Simulated scan of single mutants.
Amino acid sequence: MKKVLIVDDYPVTRMAIKILLEQVQLTVIGETEDGLEAVHLTWQLVPELIIVDIDIPSLNGIEVIHRLRGNGYTGGILVLTGKDDEHYVRRCASVGADGFISKRNNLTELHNAISAIKGGYGYFPLKRARRDMALPIPLNDKDRIALLSTKELQVLHCLARGIKVVDISVRMKISDKTVSTYKRRLMQKLELESMVELYNFTQRNNLG
């Protein structure tokens, strides 16, 4: 993961992000303040990571993510925004974002978030109950399922019925690589580490 597209309507923010990315040998191959242009640049430049704000013109960041994932983009997507309410975290995760960090933290989490995404993990810090101590909010099964996108939920139903990745790709008319990406993301969101755990989860929640 080397090539990055930055989508933010504040030039100063884009410059700050670019400087931080260059510190870890990542290359900014494109910048824009507009959501619709971000979609066009993604297909034109093929970035491996997109860093996107929510409040941007024409298409907001959530709509950008939804459109890109819906059209098969499988690269990393990190939301960097001033809107850090739990509602936005969950919404971004549900449409296919790989991570979510707040501008209120002065971009201090950027490197950690990128490292997590590069390693195949999601990065979604939850609310902090105290100023200096992170207290994760336990999620029940229903909460975790709500984090899944429509495509991820469809893949989950297929996996629960024992359908192989290659057969799911034919059924959904997408590549098996894309199915594997959805599978990886849904496993992360559901906090599952094996197919046995996935099977138990689907049986427990009548998802088969």
Score class of each variant (00 low, 15 high):
N112G: 10
A97C: 03
N105H: 14
T42C: 03
L68K: 08
S102Q: 04
I114L: 09
Y73K: 05
Q44C: 02
D34Q: 11
D53C: 06
V79F: 13
I54F: 11
D85A: 15
R90E: 03
V79N: 11
H111M: 11
V46Y: 07
C92W: 12
I62N: 05
D85I: 12
G76D: 07
N105I: 02
V64P: 02
N71W: 14
N60K: 07
L107C: 04
T74G: 01
T27W: 04
A116Q: 10
E31N: 10
T27Q: 07
I65Q: 03
G119C: 07
L80A: 11
L36G: 15
Q44A: 14
Q44K: 10
A116G: 07
F100Y: 15
I101N: 12
N60A: 10
E37V: 09
T27I: 12
L26R: 06
V89Q: 15
G82V: 14
A113Y: 05
E86C: 03
G61Q: 09
V39N: 11
Y88K: 05
F100A: 08
T27M: 07
V95L: 01
I77L: 03
K103A: 15
I117T: 04
D98M: 02
I54Q: 03
I65C: 03
G99Q: 05
D34K: 02
G119Y: 04
W43L: 04
T32S: 01
L59C: 11
I117A: 04
L110V: 08
L80V: 12
L59Q: 11
E31I: 12
T32M: 03
S115W: 09
Q44M: 08
S94I: 08
I56V: 01
V46T: 04
I56T: 04
V39T: 06
V95W: 09
V46D: 06
T32H: 06
A93S: 13
S115C: 10
T27R: 08
T27V: 13
D85T: 14
G120P: 06
Y88H: 13
V95K: 00
G35I: 08
I62P: 06
G122E: 00
R91P: 02
G122H: 12
I77H: 04
N105Q: 13
V39W: 09
H40S: 10
E31C: 08
I65G: 00
A38S: 14
T108V: 14
E37R: 12
E37D: 14
G72R: 02
K83F: 14
